[in-house]
Design a protein around this nucleic acid. Structure first.
Lengths: 157, 157
DNA sequence: CCAACGGAGTTGAACGTTCAAGATACAATC
DNA sequence: GATTGTATCTTGAACGTTCAACTCCGTTGG
């Protein structure tokens, strides 16, 4: 069993701390300012940029790295709040389409600026452009190790 | 409202994907192999390295970036499983000490190698030493932006 | 003293996620 | 053209976290 040397441990401890603290911070701000989860925002934001504001459940779940079950429950809640509605794909009844309503679109538009502002403050502006660029590369490298072959959202188009 | 340019967006999308995928992967492996949460492991690992395997509740909660309530529930569960027990601090009854039992220590020892192996495979060995070092620096930089002045675990000694 | 205060920890209810099971629709095979 | 198979999606129960009281202990100031 090969242990970690001091440099490796230092780097990992810092990074592991970030993995806990940053999502917590992003989530709590989103919850306070908009009353929704980071994850709910992610889903609605994805829908808002899709053609016809429509996406298949399974497509969303892959994009957002979440289980189908989690998505089904989540969309049901968004439906109750009037931000999304569901329809069976007329061409193939196995698929379900989630469609963002006008109210849902308005919610995304109202929420986005605060979210971007926070991301900018905590991450983008805290780093030099070169540091940020390397962080993106490093992230994709690790993502590729987790899911070899699969593309991560944002990298493909 | 200043938006993100293409480079910034690319870097952020990659990094954001990592923030979702890596903890999920670490958590699911820990759950399958050891039947405990990443967070439960973190707490027990911290206790295993403390003097007398003892720490105050509030100290653990700060170290692990978790609320006191969350910790109280968690320690209760660990207590039920026989890995931890609680005692009021004899010197000052306001404090509660959590103490790792022998069984709890054994659990940590049994779980650590698999955890390190996974971290090594997904992160340490996926990057060059220089990349890893910069990732540690970048992480601490962002952490410092979130909590100015506060030290993150692992950075202090 | 003792009364008010502030920090540490606990508790129960509400909420979101996971897990295992089930329902549905189409494709493939014989 | 029934049967088997497979992938999509849903559901309910179990579990963990959050949130808002609440308790308890020690300190501080009259």
């Amino acid at each position: 069993m090969k242990w970690l040397d001091e440099d490796q441990l230092n780097a990992w401890m810092g990074f592991a701390g970030l993995l806990t603290a940053l999502p917590a911070e992003l989530d709590s701000q989103m919850q306070r300012q908009a009353g929704i989860t980071q994850f709910e925002y992610l889903v609605m934001a994805a829908l808002s940029e899709a053609t016809d504001r429509t996406l298949r459940m399974s497509v969303i779940s892959r994009f957002a790295h979440g289980s189908l079950s989690r998505l089904s429950h989540l969309i049901k809640r968004l439906e109750k709040r009037g931000w999304v509605h569901r329809e069976l794909d007329p061409a193939d009844g196995r698929y379900t389409n989630a469609i963002l309503t006008d109210a849902g679109y308005a919610k995304v538009v109202a929420t986005a600026p605060g979210h971007v502002r926070l991301v900018r403050r905590l991450v983008i502006d805290a780093l030099t452009p070169a540091q940020l660029h390397r962080l993106g590369d490093t992230s994709r490298r690790i993502l590729d190790t987790i899911n070899p072959g699969e593309q991560c959202p944002g990298a493909r188009r």
